[in-house]
Design a protein around this nucleic acid. Structure first.
Lengths: 218, 218
DNA sequence: TAAAAATTTTAAGTTAACTTAAAAATTAAT
DNA sequence: ATTAATTTTTAAGTTAACTTAAAATTTTTA
């Protein structure tokens, strides 16, 4: 399967698994940086390959076969992230960028070697779960977005759901990283902002960030 | 630059650097598994990009720019080979196959990280020299093909110039590998075969193999 | 709930990287 | 040194993955 197909399928999967629910061609197109006409064409083609269900004007839905393919690519992506993170001193954003390319050129054999080397990790450095070689995610996720966290409660950062460079630069500067501890000192409900303390720092975050930082109660 | 372009440029470079000298479109096409018509088209296109010199019916010659690009890809290929060889238990042929894909999707940054991790190696596991980040090969090669070796002389294997699966299977079975020691016990000149001893084994090799196994006097 | 706004689809066209088949030129052989 | 064989080029055509622009449909809003 081509890189274009893998990325298309992956984009649908990612939208579905974060509850962004909109998997219509136009939205997928936006994420891939292609026209929605191209996305419609691709959707029709993939329907004939039994990778997704296509009905005019409706949201796209992966078939079991499509989901399996998505999970295979996602597995390779997250394994590369975990591997590069462990081996080299590179920013989370750089690691993401490399993984985005390498994921399409990695045999199942190599993916298994990487997984074994890392001790079959269940999470990548963003806290995203790594599917096993059967395409199964065996972990459960009970974490919540920082936007929905309780005032006064202490949390552990469980996921950083982004691929945005500036976001990761911000994280690096403020020690916001996977498995670090933070306390929610104040929720500014009407302004949609959250105040946290991390180490000796106090930071106020707006919703752009509190919707993509996920945490677990400590 | 596209994968097709990188592979085309690399094929010319590889022919030039092993003295296979034939870099006409037809021969490049054969190596890439495309038609010679396609190779001619590609050659014309790359000439307009200043990557090679094209004259009808003549051999293709890389420009400095083209050579630099080839060396950049070759560097990534050989770094991946060295890295995968060190990290994972995989056959030389499997490693080659992975590197063939990964080389096109590797940033200069990642290549430098891999190189640093390995201590900036000068050779890959086949004995091929690894260009530095400026695209320079600083090592000299005085090795000769086993076909041209002296009877009675002991040698160290310096290069295994192949990407053929069966060849590497044969090597693995007979302990023929980079930096191992062998002795040439007999040259059967008229039959174009070479008898060597390696450890306690005696093997007679035909020219298919003695032309791609390179050795240094010990 | 009808009109306005937004989105999706269709239609037509482009580009890169191929193909096959025939014509042109080169290389090899007698 | 011709002719035969081989190789390269040209010409015409295909496919995947796009594009833009207009038509069809859905969604939003007043």
């Amino acid at each position: 399967m081509s890189v274009a197909i893998e990325n298309f399928i992956k984009a649908i999967y990612n939208n579905d698994s974060h509850d962004i629910k909109d998997t219509k061609p136009g939205n997928i197109a936006k994420q891939l940086g292609i026209s929605s006409a191209a996305a419609t064409d691709m959707a029709k083609k993939l329907a004939t390959k039994n990778l997704l269900h296509y009905e005019k004007y409706q949201a796209l839905q992966l078939t079991d076969k499509g989901t399996k393919m998505a999970l295979n690519v996602v597995r390779k992506h997250r394994l590369w992230e975990a591997f590069l993170f462990k081996m080299f001193d590179m920013s989370l954003h750089d690691i993401h960028r490399e993984a985005e390319l390498l994921e399409h050129q990695t045999s199942d054999l190599l993916a298994d070697k990487i997984s074994a080397y890392l001790g079959h990790p269940k999470f990548d450095p963003h806290g995203d779960p790594i599917p096993n070689s059967n395409g199964e995610i065996t972990t459960e996720d009970h974490s919540i977005a920082l936007a929905d966290a309780k005032e006064g409660q202490t949390y552990v950062i469980s996921r950083l759901m982004s691929d945005n460079k500036e976001f990761f630069e911000f994280c690096a500067l403020n020690d916001i990283k996977y498995r670090n501890t933070i306390t929610v000192s104040k929720q500014f409900i009407t302004n949609k902002m959250t105040q946290i303390t991390i180490g000796s720092n106090t930071i106020v975050l707006n919703q752009d960030f509190t919707k993509i930082i996920y945490v677990d109660e400590k």
